[in-house]
Simulated scan of single mutants.
Amino acid sequence: MCKKKPYLLSSIREGARLGIQECRNQFKHERWNCSILPSIYTSSSSLSLSVLSSALASAHSIFGYELTSGTKETAFISAVTAAGLVHSVTRSCSAGNMTECSCDTSLQNGGSPSEGWHWGGCSDELQYGMWFSRKFLDAPYKNSSDSDVLSAMHLHNNEAGRLAVAKLMTVDCRCHGVSGSCAVKTCWKSMSSFEKIGSYLKDKYENSIQISDKLKGKVRRKEKNHRKIPIKKEDLVYTNRSPNYCVEDRKLGISGTHGRECNRTSDGPDGCNLLCCGRGYNTHVVRHVERCECKFVWCCYVRCRRCESMTDVHTCK
């Protein structure tokens, strides 16, 4: 795919960056904080081009154990990277960076003139982005010699990520009229911010469904009592329960929570009690020095005071 469509490499890289960044953003306060292997960083502390270019196709090089563990975390990684690729390719299409796709022109003549609005502008067309994401990400699992449950799980969660982008499409409008009146509106469809898509997928992660490790044509719930309840395409699914991520396990690539900063007053996942797994926490005082109460002095410089503040920082034992 990369050889056939080299002009899409920048979109693949951006899709990987979006997925990784949003994964880390959504899990930054949790025991599993979407940790990625340190070897993929360059000296400038940014994700290297070569890694990002292949990140979506071989995410194992970034996430290690998590991509093959079959856990809820695996499900989220699949969904968010698939969504990231749709988002970046579609954005590139709308920007006119590619000859194979552009804006969604099917809407142009529609609307409701009687209600004072019509379709116009440049609507994001997901069709090409969805197609490329399926072609690029699903092939390794579809072509797998053994049709195992992990491949079926990846395929399902990849599609759930893509559907999240489609589901959260919004309608934006611009007013036209004399003196700023809104006599006529031109409207177009656009994708939601990736942060909103990430938040939606995080909610799906929280409510993900455990599936049976025995395939019978399609994925099905592990709990026999609930098998009559259908699994929706937008649901995230997993096969194995997650480890607690409390203790470091180098073999599995789990970094543990030792040394992580926690919030002593929070009852949420970032609270010292939950994040530190009951081991307790250390407290140390950090001194902050910054410029403050700055004033402009005629002429021509700014005079500031030097302010100091002390903050308690709590880290897990």
Rank of each mutant, 00 (worst) to 15 (best):
K167S: 15
K142A: 11
V171P: 04
D146G: 01
M1S: 10
I12S: 06
C34M: 06
N207H: 12
C173A: 11
K218D: 09
N240V: 11
T105R: 01
A139M: 04
E308H: 05
S61T: 10
N273S: 13
V171E: 15
N273D: 10
N158K: 03
I40L: 12
T81W: 02
H288S: 10
C300F: 07
S212K: 06
N240I: 11
E159L: 14
I62F: 00
N109F: 09
L252Q: 15
D138Y: 02
A59D: 01
L275W: 09
A82P: 12
R291S: 13
H258K: 07
V80H: 03
S43R: 09
A95N: 13
S179R: 00
C262N: 03
K222Q: 08
V165L: 03
A166K: 15
T311E: 13
L137F: 06
A183N: 15
D104T: 07
G268N: 10
G271V: 04
R260V: 08
G180T: 05
S266K: 03
G64M: 05
V289W: 01
S43P: 12
D235L: 03
D270H: 09
V178M: 06
K228P: 08
D146R: 15
S266L: 06
T90I: 14
K72M: 09
H314C: 09
F76Q: 01
H314N: 12
G161M: 09
V178W: 00
C262F: 07
V80G: 11
C262E: 00
R291E: 12
K4I: 11
C2L: 12
K5S: 12
V86E: 03
N25H: 10
L37N: 15
F63E: 10
E100F: 06
I209T: 06
I62D: 10
E290R: 14
E248P: 15
T90G: 12
S46M: 10
H226Q: 14
S88E: 09
D312G: 10
T239K: 04
V285R: 04
K28C: 15
R287C: 02
V219T: 05
I12K: 07
T42Y: 00
A59E: 00
F27H: 08
K295I: 01
C175L: 08
N282A: 15
L37V: 06
L126D: 10
R305I: 00
I77F: 03
C175D: 05
L215S: 01
K72T: 07
D235F: 04
H156T: 02
V247L: 11
C272V: 15
V171Y: 03
Y245S: 04
S106D: 12
Y238Q: 06
W131V: 03
R291P: 06
S92L: 07
V297S: 13
